[in-house]
């Protein structure tokens, strides 16, 4: 196989936002995107995570998917702070529509309106959806 090219990324910091729109179980996207968030943070990028639509359930307290044969990965969100990923946004409209409150989450989040989130998204260099 050909040699892997190496790109010069030294000293470049971009704004990466990871956009979570799906329920935590049922598809693998939320679990796998989280692995990708941790890697971007390890690269010392300006990393943030947004939760909207059913994605807000990913950080809900009290998850127990054992009966589904799945692993509760919500504690991993608490590890984000250790990687300096502290910009966690929850879209207010999605939270309200699902009857959730800011105390229902396993991590400290900033609740923003859809309009505010759109503005934050527009400021990013990279948006990665999962």
């Amino acid at each position: 196989m050909s040699e892997e090219p190496v790109f010069d990324t030294q000293g470049v910091v971009k704004k990466f936002m990871y956009v979570n729109r799906r329920a935590p179980y049922g598809t693998i996207y939320p679990l796998e995107i989280l692995e990708s968030v941790l890697v971007a943070a390890a690269f010392e990028q300006d990393t943030s995570v947004a939760f909207l639509d059913d994605g807000v359930f990913q950080i809900k307290k009290g998850q127990d998917p054992k009966e589904l044969g799945m692993k509760n990965f919500s504690p991993t969100f608490r590890a984000l702070a250790g990687y300096d990923v502290e910009k966690l946004y929850v879209e207010k409209e999605s939270m309200d529509a699902r009857g959730l409150k800011v105390d229902d989450f396993v991590v400290k989040v900033r609740v923003v309106s859809a309009a505010e989130l759109a503005k934050l998204m527009a400021e990013q260099d990279i948006l990665i959806t999962g």
Binding site: S2, K14, F43
Partner: peptide, 26 residues
């Protein structure tokens, strides 16, 4: 042929190096 296996760092790296990163999926 033509593919190789590597880590997620390669995704972050191309995000940094490229002018645009395009995501194809839902």
């Amino acid at each position: 042929e033509g593919f190789h296996i590597s880590g997620l760092g390669q995704l972050t790296e191309v995000g940094i190096a490229a002018d645009r990163l395009l995501v194809f999926g839902d």
